[in-house]
């Protein structure tokens, strides 16, 4: 089980505000948004760069840390400053233990 640690004070406040005003938390808190369609497509919004890419693993930097996508025949269908579309047979999506320093 990966422990991401306690969020900082600023982030906790932001979460409260987002909950109170029913605002999208990924916008208010600058969090990544993941949309997984079956095991074939993964859309990651609000990423901070590509760390590593191979046919079996893709690592993305996000505000929460490193997002590791494992599987087979992984392809990046599209990558822009904000979003990444990953195609292939996705087996595992996990967060790395280390947290990005704020």
């Amino acid at each position: 089980m990966v422990k991401l640690g306690k969020p900082p004070k600023k982030a906790r406040f932001g979460a409260k505000v987002a909950e109170l005003f029913e605002l999208p938390s990924e916008v208010v808190l600058d969090l990544p948004r993941l949309v997984l369609t079956g095991t074939e497509q993964l859309l990651v919004e609000n990423h901070r760069g590509l760390l590593a890419y191979s046919r079996s693993e893709i690592c993305l930097q996000t505000s929460l840390g490193v997002l590791r996508v494992s599987g087979e025949e992984l392809d990046i269908k599209l990558i822009t400053q904000d979003q990444v579309n990953i195609d292939g047979r996705i087996g595992k999506v996990e967060w790395d233990a280390r947290r990005e320093k704020e």
Binding site: K77, L78, T80
Partner: peptide, 9 residues
Amino acid sequence: GAVFWDIKR
């Protein structure tokens, strides 16, 4: 600001 697609290793 570049956009890449169909990235293959």
